[in-house]
Design a protein around this nucleic acid. Sequence first.
DNA 1: AGATCGCCCTGCTTGC
DNA 2: TGCAAGCAGGGCGATC
Length: 286
Amino acid sequence: MPELPEVEVVRRGLERWVAGRTVEAVEVLHPRAVRRHPAGAADFAARLTGETFGVPQRRGKYLWLPLERRDLSVLGHLGMSGQLLVQPEEAADEKHLRIRVRFRDGAGTELRFVDQRTFGGLSLHENTPEGLPDVIAHIARDPLDPLFDEAAYHAALRLKRTTVKRALLDQSLISGVGNIYADEALWRARLHYERPTATLTRPRSAELLGHVRDVMNAALEVGGTSFDSLYVNVNGESGYFDRSLDAYGREDEPCRRCGTPMRRRPWMNRSSYFCPRCQRPPRVAS
DNA sequence: AGATCGCCCTGCTTGC
DNA sequence: TGCAAGCAGGGCGATC
């Protein structure tokens, strides 16, 4: 499940292998892969053909390829299982190949969007004055962004009547944190996922944010997390950070700090993994 | 109007 | 054995 570190690995791959290349042709093999492009697959392909990609950008889990000639970007989200692969043109189509982008140069490779569960997709959007695709203007900066407003983030947590994991996953407050890294950061901070954000002191909140950054940077160093080879980076290489996870997916396994069996609890149609001893539930039930 | 919930989707795993 | 339910879950639109 690609989160910020995985998407950043993909962005770097695109920067190396796709930036500066001019599109010869676009093939949309599944309409759902361009469902965020309102004018449809044919329009997406037509408008992209002949354009040259600039340097790929990222905010949270979104990445985009600005076009050099126009104030437009190709916005991408990998969803649950999306991959952006640079493949030799002669390589066999992947089973879940959704979009193919051929290039005008003689490099012999093409860009492929492959996505089993079709939660992800590509689309074309106008840029805001800040150079951000307009449809993601509501997405907050991520914790690895140098311009992330930490003071505003802490202030928002104090004001909101919500719980800490909800706040971590709220992409309008902080972006790029998904279920995996939320659980990892909470475990590191010894915080229960249902802790009300208003009860967090500023130092405690800053400590949690530090853990979010640490776990993301650690994942970045090893090239992203991978569970079932659904996530592969831009060149088809799997990450292996999952071996380093301390909380996520470790139900009944001993806590790496205290040995207590880790627990899994249904939460918001997903799961929360935590140590019942290190991460005590808040005293006041909400 | 901000918070919450259901749904989209496929394939692997689990259990009867 | 075979089938069905469960699970993975980000983000968006509907709803309260």
